[in-house]
Simulated assay, not measured.
Amino acid sequence: MCDEFASDRINDIDDDGLRAWPLPMPSEDGDKEQRGSVLVIAGSRQMPGAAILAATAALRAGAGKLTIATSAATAPLVALAMPEARVVDLPETDAGAIAPAAADILNGMLAKFDTVLIGPGMQDEQGSCAFVMALLPHLNGAKLVLDAAAMNVVRRQLQAVDATCHPQQRYVSQFDTPVLLTPHAGEMAHLNACDKHGVLADPLAAARHAARRWNALVALKGATTIIAAPSGEVWRHEGGNIGLAISGSGDALSGIIAGLSARGAQLEQAAAWGVALHARAGERLAERFGPLGYLAREIPAEIPALMHALCLQP
């Protein structure tokens, strides 16, 4: 299975590699526009906190402007929790998902954003998929990060909510815009209708084949995280600790990546730096609280200092 990739390059994500791949930095007299604008589409009635976690992390990673689009029931809470953000309330389905009609509401503002993150805390697999499918044609080349339920647009087994939808429009076979997907092993198995143990047995092969199949950058999360590009190039990170395996941790990671992307990093660089910063934040928190028991909401606050230290020359 790995033979066709045998000569392809694997880059280890470590301090030296990150310093050799510096993040875009705004000029000293730059304003928030220069630091980029990010749209976070996230949250649901039962998981409003996911939008807050991801949005906070995007700002901590250095994005200049933040807009959050979330379900109508969730929007007032998110607006109170995130005074830094513009908050857009979106119509919901009966199951609590963001309704496909919300794509029409967002369409007029999408051109303003450098990066769009979709998925943290979104519920109703079919409803979320229908919304993302309705939104994709309007993204106009913005860098896109798909997380959690939003990744289901690549699931061939998922039937569209709209029974009149043409079968070929029920899932994305390949993306034609820059896209990053962020599955863990269980999600990867779900997306590919395969066995989780098989993904865990060879995450490198799983990530590479998914990247080529979907024409997308794929960050397969785990104790060893593999970031695979459609070209076959791979970035590998080892680090972090068991404390990062907690509710909301993935939302924080996707927000970090989106924030880095918004300020000018290409998706592969944003993913590599995001994974490294997320892991190092876990290490810092473990030193302070112990390896278990720190919270996902505490991860974003660690990012600025870690990022600054890594950006300094050794």
Rank of each mutant, 00 (worst) to 15 (best):
L295E: 07
N11K: 06
P230W: 07
I105D: 11
A85F: 07
L146P: 10
T93I: 03
P100W: 08
I256N: 02
M1E: 11
P183I: 08
A75Y: 12
H190K: 10
E28Q: 12
P100I: 11
R86G: 04
D114A: 14
C129Y: 00
G222R: 07
A134R: 14
T56N: 14
L277W: 02
E287W: 03
G274F: 01
A150R: 03
L181W: 00
L90S: 06
A223F: 05
P91T: 13
G30Q: 05
I299S: 02
V145E: 01
A50W: 04
S44A: 13
R60F: 08
M109V: 14
K143Y: 05
P178F: 02
D89I: 02
A51Y: 05
S249W: 01
D16K: 10
P291D: 12
E283D: 15
S247R: 14
G255F: 06
K196Y: 01
R284T: 15
A309T: 13
L144H: 06
V234E: 01
G243N: 05
M47N: 03
P22A: 05
Q123G: 01
R213G: 03
N215K: 09
M122L: 15
T225V: 10
K32N: 09
R86Y: 08
R9A: 13
Y171L: 00
R170M: 10
S173A: 15
I242E: 11
A276L: 08
A296K: 02
A149G: 03
L139G: 11
L39W: 06
H308R: 13
S37Y: 03
